[in-house]
Write a protein that binds this DNA or RNA. Structure first.
Lengths: 356, 356
DNA sequence: ATGCCCGGCTGGAACTGTTTCACTTGCATG
DNA sequence: CATGCAAGTGAAACAGTTCCAGCCGGGCAT
């Protein structure tokens, strides 16, 4: 509703000045800028072309362009978003916040300047503060594939607790007692869920949590290799590994095959899969799977619905299910544990002496 | 330069009518529409917001939204495009032509309506005609990762002939004489190059091309499995396979491991990799690799350069190099060929009897 | 001290594209 | 023949942005 001229009239400035504020031109007085921004936030504003409002949302990457390290999570997500945008007739822009946002403009200003009406946010290492700021400005936004405790932050994620717990219980039911957990070394809610699932499953089965079996590393192939070396090199080695990250899982599998460790006869592996990488290798991975495409579609639908209906106060803290899929990398616990008394020097983490 | 009003004045119609044509409104006379479109094509036109020209290009998927089947080619490509857009300050939109284009509008009209000034095109199964039409309209466009004989079609691709030939020669130098070729069953220039490299390498080594060793299938995991079954099931089985597609390669590897065929001791495999999937499995794939990220970056740079300079006649038929990377899946030809006299019934293609 | 110049800041005007509304025109129909 | 309806069009209003001129204050030379 609020047009540049309307705002200008209210503040006794010219439309030109309002436009300059919107586009972050340098030569506007700081006090004037503040007044205009305040009024814009108050009245709301949607970018227009001529008389038509632009129906564009963005997928914003706060840090890097598009991440390809995460395998096909990104294309699956994108594909889902595009499908979710089909019916409401919205367009999608790709945005790199770090690259394009001017330091002295607000996030709202930045998004308006880019002509978008809402944003789907990806959450990586260090940008939770960024996301909280965006939420605080009340610009229509939704985080995908992560959760936030802060109220006001909308998110849509896959809850991997139930299926993670199922996965660990599956391993226990196969007779495994030494189950390792390979975690991401930066805490996000997804990985916290998986950790909790691991703890709870062991506790309910009356099994102790051995700190030597829990390892935190960056998500990468080499981390996976390190996990395998460490966990099979313990005095009392792990007979199963639950890896909470796709790349780590691939690294574990690769290293196991390299060392001639038979999966699942000597070692069971459960991974996490964002798309369908689990089926690309043999044996097919038993894995906790989340449907990135569904996440994208639901997020796009929610966002466009909020924009279209004008319900800026709407909140989304939704969770969709993940599925634990049993494939070829999990089997009965071996009688004689794999690789006992070998590679003892490789223990690089945990506290092997104290573990009973 | 050409504004809606300028065009309107030239044709003695109102700006409103020109705008209606641009936006494909139904209630404009067919003759008028033709006249306006002709003049727009003649004078050129760039979408604007107010007085500012919009610096937006699109990555257009002619058929489906975004393809995730191709592994991490798409994210790598996107990442490259975003980097290529960094310096010229362009934004990127994602477009689905099939979904959004109205049947009765031209491609130029469609792109202008979407507010973009140039387009990077992905080429899939059946859209070569589409791409030729876009090129014929002379809208700034560049095809990425494919080649065209038609003049006027700009493209940027990776030429896999030299490294494909290197790959086959590498196999020959390892003593392989029965080298299978697993091709995509839809002909594109990339796969044609690889076929030619295969033929030439064999010919120069004085080896015959056995039709039984050449198989054409869709790009998929199951195709790869079929390739492995077929080629190891021949009376005179293949000792090496060159697969021209990433998915097929993964399928071959998966099936080989499933059947307990030792790669590379019993069978050598060379694949093609768009990103870094070759390193995700063990043994690491010997593969012809193309840098999707570089393709995206170069394409984005060329396109923005053409748009900025206004040289609409510029042509791009560039080729960047691919690299053949020797990893763990190629080794000396086995003395006794793998799996001889087994699975004879599985031969599903080729002409086993006639092959000498 | 006075005059001059320059840079920050602003508004009016001009220009961009789109939509709404009223109007004309032609054709079918009562 | 009058009426009504639909298609097609233009003027005007309205959306945002930029160019240009002007104001105003401060610094500097004379």
């Amino acid at each position: 509703m609020a047009s540049v001229r309307a705002i200008a009239a209210q503040l006794n400035v010219s439309p030109a000045t309002v436009s300059r504020v919107l586009n972050n031109h340098p030569d506007v007085d700081e006090a004037t800028r503040e007044r205009v921004l305040a009024r814009i936030n108050e009245l709301g504003y949607s970018p227009r072309i001529g008389r038509r409002i632009t129906n564009v949302i963005a997928l914003a990457y706060p840090d890097e362009p598009v991440r390809s390290e995460y395998g096909s999570f990104e294309p699956a997500l994108l594909s889902g978003i595009m499908r979710g945008l089909e019916e409401p007739q919205f367009d999608l822009k790709l945005l790199n916040i770090r690259r394009d946002k001017a330091p002295n403009e607000t996030y709202t200003q930045f998004f308006i300047r880019k002509g978008i009406r809402g944003v789907i946010l990806r959450c990586f290492r260090n940008n939770r503060p960024t996301i909280c700021k965006i939420a605080a400005e009340r610009f229509p936004a939704i985080v995908v594939a992560d959760a936030f405790d802060e109220p006001g932050v909308n998110f849509l994620r896959a809850d991997s607790y139930p299926s993670s717990r199922q996965a660990v219980e599956h391993l226990i039911s196969l007779g495994h007692r030494r189950i390792a957990l390979a975690m991401h070394n930066v805490p996000d809610s997804d990985h916290a869920d998986r950790r909790r699932a691991y703890d709870d499953a062991l506790f309910c089965a009356g099994l102790p949590v051995d700190p030597a079996l829990v390892i935190e590393l960056p998500a990468s192939l080499t981390s996976g290799e390190q996990v395998l070396d460490t966990m099979t090199g313990l005095d009392d080695p792990a007979t199963a590994i639950f890896a909470t990250n796709p790349m780590t899982t691939l690294g574990i599998m690769r290293r196991a095959q390299e060392k001639g460790i038979d999966v699942p006869k000597q070692l069971s592996v459960v991974g996490v899969d964002d798309s369908d990488v689990r089926t690309h290798i043999w044996p097919r991975l038993s894995a906790v799977t989340q449907d990135a495409s569904a996440l994208g579609m639901e997020a796009a639908r929610w966002l466009t619905e909020v924009i279209a209906s004008g319900k800026t106060g709407a909140s989304c803290r939704r969770t969709i299910d993940t599925v634990f899929e049993v494939n070829g990398t999990t089997g009965p616990a071996p009688q004689r544990q794999a690789r006992r008394h070998q590679d003892r020097g490789r223990v690089t983490t945990g506290d092997a002496e104290k573990s009973d």
